[in-house]
Amino acid sequence: MSRKHKTLFRAYFAWDYEQELEELDRLSRQGWQLVKGGCFHSRFVKNEGQRFRYQLDYRPEVEDMGRYLEIFREQGWEYVNSTYNGWRYFRKAYDPALPEEEYQIFTDRSSLGEMTRRLRKLALALMAAALLMAAVEGVLLVMKPRLPQLILTGTLLFEGLVMAWGAGFMDAPEKHRGKAKSGYVIWVFLLVLVLGFGSGIYLMEQRHSSGVMYLGGIGDGSVTVEHWGEFDIVYKDNYYLSAETSAQSPLILSIVQEETGETVYSRELGTAGELPYIALEDEQMKLERGSYRIYLSDYYGETVAVNWSIE
């Protein structure tokens, strides 16, 4: 038994809606009739007895749905469905005797222009949102260079540029007409966004370690080295150490890689008149993947509380 229904996961950029119409016409010729159009997937039913021609109207706000559908019905258009974001699918039974203009819903430049302007506005709004976010992420990237920030900024920039390209496309749609595009291009775009945002957020989450430690009470005046805490680094990147403590005498804070024993960071605290309160903020260091320990040396046994974090 042959299949009666099928779902196609083809999707198009808003500005490529004519490509989608061509695709719907082609499928209709092959006997697959659209039942429900969608932005990312469409349902078809097998019916070889009839052929339809399709039209799409992008109109997120229809003031009077009754009047709207009536005007389409009057001219032989059957309403198929609307997508959540305002695309409206119509179809008309195909009759080869009818002139081609019978299958157009926009018959003058100004009304078609109104629709392309709505699409352009959409693309520009998305572009502005993406570029604004890219600018914010970009500032953070300059302040604290690190890999996930770079990925997020790049992804937003890419999204913004694609939208800018789309808006430019809507300025002169006729220039781009007839260039065949696959219905799967948008999935590549979405995949880039998902991978970009996903990996950026995931890598960001992997970076954070922090701890609190209280020491003290011994106070016999002997110099010791205390192990403050440890953390793991999952991937090589720039990391930022922040720490706060109060101490009465100078201390040395060091970070040592466990595997190699190498001291990757060391700083003398409290020698520049900073006592008794010492704070380190966003000390940049390049760390390889591995386990690290934080040590406090030249510690005189006084009571100190330490808060630290690595991002």
Partner: peptide, 25 residues
């Protein structure tokens, strides 16, 4: 709407058509 559409076609000698999208707008 349909009356307007067919009368337009008639008056213009078939030269001007007003499609549904154009008509609604």
């Amino acid at each position: 709407g349909y009356g307007i559409m067919s009368m337009t076609r008639e008056l213009s000698g078939g030269e001007v058509r007003i499609g549904s999208g154009t008509m609604y707008g």
